[in-house]
Design a protein around this nucleic acid. Sequence first.
RNA 1: CGCGGGGUGGAGAAGUGGUAUCUCGUCAGGCUCAUAACCUGAAGACCGGUGGUUCAAAUCCAUCCCCCGCAACCA
Length: 525
Amino acid sequence: MGKYYITTPIYYPSDKLHIGHAYCTTVADALARYHRIKGDDTFFLTGSDEHGLKIQRKAAEKGVTPLEYVDGIIANFKLLWKKLNISNDDFIRTSEERHHKVVQNALKKIFEQGDIYKKNYEGLYCVPCESYWLERQLDEKGCCPDCHRPVEKMQEESYFFKMSKYQEWWLDFIDKNPDFIQPESRRNEMINFVKQGLEDLCITRTTFDWGIPVPFDTKHVVYVWFDALLNYLTGIKYGEDEKFFKRFWPADLHLVGKEIVRFHSIIWPIMLHALGVEMPKKIYGHGWLVVDGTKMSKSLGNVVDPLGLIDEFGSDAIRYFLLREINLGNDGNFSRDALIQRTNADLANDLGNLLNRTVAMIIKYHSGEVKNSKQNDAVDNDLINLAQQTVKDYTSQMDNMNITDAVKTVWNLIGKANKYIDETAPWALAKDDTKQAKLQTVMYNLAETLRLVAIMVAPYIPDAAPKIYEQLGLGNEPLQLSDAVWGGLADGTKVVKGDPLYPRTTVDKDGCTVIGGKKYVAGEN
RNA sequence: CGCGGGGUGGAGAAGUGGUAUCUCGUCAGGCUCAUAACCUGAAGACCGGUGGUUCAAAUCCAUCCCCCGCAACCA
């Protein structure tokens, strides 16, 4: 038994979260839950990155303070995570006092050791947007890429972090830790990037004040990365509770989107190195979701709101789809049709129906009582062997973050169990008085398979997994990987008839989905 | 010559040197325990084009065509 500290990025509360945020957080949640059922001392952190000009402006537009503005949005973040069954242990907000302290102390330390200096920053400035642009970022006419108005040369005094000083150290570190950045394609990208030469990083601003004041020069506030990245330390009480911090640091995994791999794999390690803090173990850059084949964007109006989907299909369905359908590391496609198809086939038909028919038969043939008569022949042993092999494969795949493969592995067992029913034809055994022991064996093997399945799927579909346990007659016993050993189901256990695990979704002639008798108008999400 | 990802049966995907896999859909059959579910079988791919390396290439190399991202705060 070990420990496991996993983080998601902290999301920016300028707007509602979309399905892409939900994807990242779901993956992190599945990993966190997996490590918990494995018995690891687990800490799962997510949160929000609340400072900056964008927020300050939005708040001003609405006539509220920045904090009031983000409070409203953060309430929505938290609601989404709750509805998605996200099991984060803490939610860090960069506007919190505990975080300000960490950032200011870190800044002070690095400043005092001479790695931060002040200089005039000269650049092309868009006054209405209050932001600097590099020449190559400008649009075709040489104007601001955001508002397409002319930019002008401006000078501002800023503090810089001496990243360039650590370039060789970084290359050496990456060379010695080949698994630090994953997938490998991103690692290569990062190495190429750094080899082109690292520039010092501008870490403060004076153009807005919704941020953490720089302790040695309060005209300035901390700008983005020196603020946001440090949340991973704040979340486990860095500088505040040494014992707690040491319990979880170094982070086992920073899960991030591919667009911010650069910040997490270059700036972040260098910051930590300058601070004298041990390196995290792994940065993983996952792919993006595209919707019906095209990138999600506000201007296209195809941004998918996960809250509506959860209300319609349930959190398990969304989680399952994201974990099963999208290969971690690659981009993946999201569509309602695919979601409906996948959840009908895998959750309702394969898993839900397997449980339903198994429980129904045990009740019908044995008044609900399970007994292992161990009359196993070749077909039975096939199932038992596969079940045991499945637990093994699942464990190693989850340990290696091959979530999609692990899901497939478990569903292969579910498929095998459905087939096993056909092969053994319990309804025929039931009619033959001489085959009663055999019938008991078959029922036991099915129930036992389902018990192992319940444990393994618990990280993916946390709503349903305990319900499987309940219907198997195990009440609300905790699901633990150490119990996923064949033969653990005791004779005399009484199964309990329950509702179907998942209703089937049908689409009527108007294109509306009908789930469990309830109708949803298409396109409302 | 900016960087990267991708082009695999009707659809979506997996597969990085050795009989082309999975899901959905289609067609035919089986079963009746179950959520019109489950099981079996079949049809259907010259793995973007061309050239090369190899006994052997979807898989390696070259070249071309097409899609899609990114270019130092959009997961």
